[in-house]
Amino acid sequence: MMSLRYLPLWITAALLCLLFGIGGWQFDGFASLAVVSNLFSDNAFLLIVALGMTLVIISGGIDLSVGAVIALSGVATGLLISQYQWHPLTAFALIVPAAALFGALMGVLIHVYKLQPFIVTLAGMFLARGLATTLSEESIAIDHSFYDAIAEFGFALPGGGWVGASTMIFMVLLVLVIMLMHYSRFGACVYAIGGNSQSAQLMGVPVASTTIAIYALSSVLAALAGIVFTFYTFSGYALAGVGMELDAIAAVVIGGTLLTGGSGFVIGTVLGVLLMGVIQTYIIFDGSLSSWWTKIVIGLLLFGFIVLQKVLSRRTALTTVAGSTAHG
């Protein structure tokens, strides 16, 4: 019984190991700490966004605005540092609460005005992308001693690996989100709302404040991802992160979270992003495969996992029926 719940998680983990093993067997230098650490540092922003997306999807919602929030926070960071000469940390201190407000407003529209998350966050996506292009259409280069320090911060691993600031920020956020989702009352409420928000309400869950907090958190994590993205590119650009929301949603699904809400694991999402990353790395190492195979393979993977989820949820339904007949 227990294994059924964890099955998608195990499958993702197994696929990850398998592909990594095949890569290591086929290509020199694939199975190295350098590749592993690059996997994390190249995907740090996606990993961070996907953490927030996991939260939203477990609650039964969806957030299409995250890619645009990444761009907006990147552009704002760039502007504040390069044009207004703010210290990066002061800029971050403004941007993160602003993102929380942005997400909270979407949460209010969704909960109070009973609008569908899909369409509200779609409007949020236009708004954030629109604000970003309004602030600056051109890419803004960031040149600041703090950024140089960030780039050098980190420690080396044997075999050419490097754990940089982005990876560390992600790790810290991962621990925080796991604590939040699996060890706090807030997390329990998120699962409860995803299961059945009416029952949750009857059981005394503060549905309003939790919903609003969920979207605020998702936007905060997206803004942090935007900041981490500027560490990676040394610039803020209004067209950054286009389509990132889709990658995040795909990673969450591949990580075993039910898109209908109420079930899933934060760590699964991390495995999902890494699996997508390994596919990309494999295709790059292979050289003969073209980049579009990434999309096709991820699409097929998504299909496989969605069908798996269907089969699993049908089987749980069947065991429940069987159980109740045994009793009744």
Binding site: A188, C189, G195, Q198, S199, V205, G262
Partner: peptide
């Protein structure tokens, strides 16, 4: 039954009153 089928039995019993 107005409980949450996706949560564990223990979580259903203590939702909102979990020992912390």
């Amino acid at each position: 039954v107005n409980l949450l089928p996706n949560l564990s039995v223990a979580q259903n019993l203590f939702l909102g009153h979990e020992p912390r």
